[in-house]
Design a protein around this nucleic acid. Sequence first.
DNA 1: ATTATTGATACAAGGACTTGCAGTTGCATA
DNA 2: TATGCAACTGCAAGTCCTTGTATCAATAAT
Lengths: 139, 139
Amino acid sequence: MAKSGEILSKLTEQGYRITPQRMMILDAIENAEDHISAEEILTLVCLQYPNVNISTVYRTLELLKQLGMVTETDFGDGRVRYHSIKKGRHHHLVCQKCGGIVDMEESIFNPVKETLLEQYGFDADIHHMAIFGYCKKCR
Amino acid sequence: MAKSGEILSKLTEQGYRITPQRMMILDAIENAEDHISAEEILTLVCLQYPNVNISTVYRTLELLKQLGMVTETDFGDGRVRYHSIKKGRHHHLVCQKCGGIVDMEESIFNPVKETLLEQYGFDADIHHMAIFGYCKKCR
DNA sequence: ATTATTGATACAAGGACTTGCAGTTGCATA
DNA sequence: TATGCAACTGCAAGTCCTTGTATCAATAAT
Ligand SMILES: [Zn+2]
Ligand SMILES: [Zn+2]
Ligand SMILES: [Zn+2]
Ligand SMILES: [Zn+2]
């Protein structure tokens, strides 16, 4: 399990700078109880330092995604949510009727990933997906 | 293979109306060469009747999605694209480096769908997905 | 130390949808 | 034909996110 320190050194290694904004944003994601939205991150960060802009949040999230530290998922409610890779890998099942969301183990896509590699030579990047459908009691 | 007539009668069956706007929008999607965006649909429709609004296009697309006549896919270029189910079911592999997009057979998710049904009782709605990753020559 | 260079930020404007609403259209019953 | 009702549309405003730009900060070169 990577520590925040590792993430920050990974930034410097690649020529990125460690700024107070980035530290606060990363902190907000890692300490979040649940999957967190950009607006929620901004609110938390602004408690510490009120002049941070939402565009900085989005740009930092883009950076953390590229570095593989954070995943982005659309649960279908009009805003995207973020999750630290440190807090475990998984996917979600989202019921289109009752709105229920349940966790799903990451290994479920292994057969698909293998097939894609064999048949298409494609290295699929399947992380923290939201699969839509109907749950047991709604279908 | 469903004809447009069937789609239109499916609308009336469920209490929806067949309006000129809806007919033109459906026509644009079904006659499109490729996966088409809302803005492109609007442009085509406005050639016939110039006063159609983009919100009508989006509302009609939402309706056609609900009826299972049209799929919506985000290829990661900032706008969502639509595809008529009449023109065949498939998924796509999108390379995050070269941007290449290749078709993929629909059956690839069958093992996942079966597992979800058995283990979670979840009826997954997996249609016209875009899977991101790296293609043979880019990885 | 001083200057150049590059990176990062805040702000504002823009793009892709979505939503609220008032007005219109089409259908049903009388 | 008139009246009521529900579906639909266009318009405008709003939301979420992205992008251009001038300014500011940190590192590198002089
Ligand atoms: Zn999750
Ligand atoms: Zn449900
Ligand atoms: Zn397709
Ligand atoms: Zn490629």
